[in-house]
């Protein structure tokens, strides 16, 4: 049930996207105004600045969502809903995740191409659909000290961006390809306690995704 509503919400966001972007595309013809103000005027505060879809990173075989950008697009907050089919995890999983990302540098490679060489961030995810996730009364308190469903961890990656015509710094219209290397709290604890028996590469996860600013 919950999973269906996740999907519904995601679909709604994705369907709404074209109308948002059509609105944004028509904007350059409007009367000139300071970029920052203009953006504020045409983008209500609640309108997401970007949509994204990704695979991996521990938050879904496919995870899609929307997010906001702040501080001249250096800081982003993304919300994603992910899905893992039963054949890969033993049960069908739906994951709700949030990311906080910081990309301090932007390198212009060519007229319409940009590179964000470094994105660092943190993520949090909640998994719904796990088979044995500690029912009430099943265990005494702290029998298992960790949560089966709640994960968090650090991320680091890069992003290659193609700027669409009419894109401005204040209101970017762009398509980006990104990757993120990350790990989660439990993998990190295991690595911290086993510097001989585990290598850093063994605890890494990889996410690859596409992000569209509109």
């Amino acid at each position: 049930m919950q999973y269906r509503s996740f999907l519904g919400a995601t679909a709604a966001v994705l369907l709404l996207a074209p109308s948002f972007s059509a609105h944004a595309t028509s904007e350059p013809d409007a009367a000139p105004a300071p970029a920052q103000k203009r953006t504020a005027a045409i983008h209500p505060w609640y309108r997401p600045r970007h949509l994204m879809v990704q695979t991996g990173g521990g938050i879904g075989m496919v995870a899609a969502g929307a997010g906001y950008a702040f501080a001249k697009n250096k800081v982003e907050t993304d919300i994603l809903l992910g899905y893992v089919p039963k054949k890969y995890a033993g049960s069908t999983l739906s994951l709700a995740s949030a990311k906080l990302l910081y990309s301090p540098f932007t390198v212009r490679l060519a007229d319409q191409w940009q590179l964000k060489p470094l994105t660092v961030g943190v993520y949090f995810s909640y998994t719904h659909g796990t088979i044995n996730d500690e029912e009430r009364g099943q265990y005494t308190k702290d029998y298992y000290w960790f949560s089966t469903d709640t994960r968090y961890g650090p991320l680091a990656g890069s992003r290659l961006t193609f700027l669409r015509p009419g894109s401005t710094e204040a209101a970017p219209k762009a398509v980006s390809l990104y990757y993120e290397l990350g790990t989660n709290d439990l993998y990190a604890v295991s690595y911290a306690q086993n510097r001989k028996g585990l290598s850093f590469g063994q605890i890494l996860t990889l996410a690859i995704g596409v992000k569209a600013d509109f």
Binding site: T55, G56, G57, G58, I59, G60, M61, G82, V84, Y88, A89, G90, S91, L93, L95, F105, V107, L115, P117, L118, T127, T130, R151, G157, S158, Y179, L181, N184, L186, Y187, G201, L204, T205, L206, A207, I208
Partner: peptide, 27 residues
């Protein structure tokens, strides 16, 4: 920076690219 991060990305990908694409810790 780009060179550094690209290098590390290539290194990470060649380690075990597909295996690192973890769908969930339960994957």
């Amino acid at each position: 920076f780009p060179r550094l991060t690209l290098l590390s990305a290539v290194a990470a990908l060649s380690l075990s690219g597909c295996e690192m694409l973890e769908f969930s810790p339960n994957d």
